[in-house]
């Protein structure tokens, strides 16, 4: 599939350039359009939460940013540089393996099902990337990992294998593992959906702490509306592959403009 990319800049410059920018991004699986010319910008240090009914394309947005999915049209920029594409001469072409690997380093992700490496201890999960990708020494990687495990409250379990951890504990290790790569952008994909209700708190606490103490740019997909409202700078409501409505949490939750948003929020409230 070729597309005309002449309209897209080779890089974003200027002091107010966004940390993440989706420019006209579309994606289909066969006949099913999951994203329809999405434009979305996330500023440095901003916490943006994506909500919406299932199948609205929320998770796809995160997976594209992590390069787990390819895009059909448009360009995604991260920290000024194109992620999905790369400049050749004065046009953009589809990114090759090396470009993806270089640009992907800006992004970290936590998954719904944790995806910890089951044959490595909590600590080894956190040092694998820093040692082998970032080139840290074992001691440096270990210090960094221990500091992060301390932050997520898992330092006591650093030598345990994932099979011996609870869901909430696994997710906290997964957060430490992603942070150990020092990403500029963190993605949280329904990180509490697979957890028992009584342990979601330990994971949301960690994310709250991150928001309060660090200047990370974060994108989150969640079904926990209360949590989203508490910590987000902005909420995007997705519907049929587009942003139906977006704004600060108090506006979007308190005074939704779109009828679809109102329907969705009242359905969610009833469920609670």
């Amino acid at each position: 599939m070729t597309q005309d990319l002449t309209g897209y800049p080779l890089a974003l410059t200027g002091p107010d350039r966004p940390m993440v920018r989706f420019a006209g991004v579309s994606k289909s699986y066969g006949d099913l359009q999951v994203l329809d010319r999405l434009d979305l910008e996330v500023a440095e240090g901003e916490m943006v939460t994506i909500i919406g009914p299932s199948g609205s394309g929320k998770t796809t947005v995160l997976r594209m940013l992590m390069t787990l999915e390819t895009i059909d049209e448009g360009v995604i920029y991260v920290d000024g540089n194109p992620l999905t594409h790369m400049p050749r001469g004065d046009v953009l072409v589809r990114a090759d393996r090396h470009h993806l690997r270089r640009e992907r380093a800006n992004i970290g992700m936590c998954f719904q099902h944790f995806n910890l490496f089951p044959h490595m201890t909590a600590l080894e999960n956190c040092t694998e990337g820093p040692i082998h990708v970032l080139g840290l020494t074992k001691a440096e990687a270990r210090d960094r990992a221990e500091e992060l495990l301390e932050m997520v409250g898992m330092i006591d379990k650093r030598d345990e294998f994932p099979a011996r951890l609870s869901g909430g504990q696994k997710q906290r290790v997964a957060i430490a593992r992603a942070l150990a790569m020092r990403p500029k952008v963190m993605l949280f994909d329904e990180v509490t959906s697979a957890l028992d209700p009584e342990v979601t708190g330990e994971v949301t606490e960690v994310i709250r702490k991150l928001v309060a103490q660090h200047n990370l740019t974060m994108l989150m997909v969640t079904h926990q509306m209360g949590f989203a409202r508490d910590i987000s700078d902005r909420i995007c409501f997705f519907h049929n592959g587009r942003i139906e409505e977006q704004g600060p949490p108090q506006d979007l939750f308190g005074n939704p403009q779109s009828e679809r948003t109102q329907q969705f929020l009242s359905a969610v409230n009833e469920a609670i």
Binding site: M66, I107, E128, V133
Partner: peptide, 8 residues
């Protein structure tokens, strides 16, 4: 996916 997210 986790390996990709860690850029391995």
């Amino acid at each position: 996916e986790a390996a990709t997210s860690l850029n391995l």
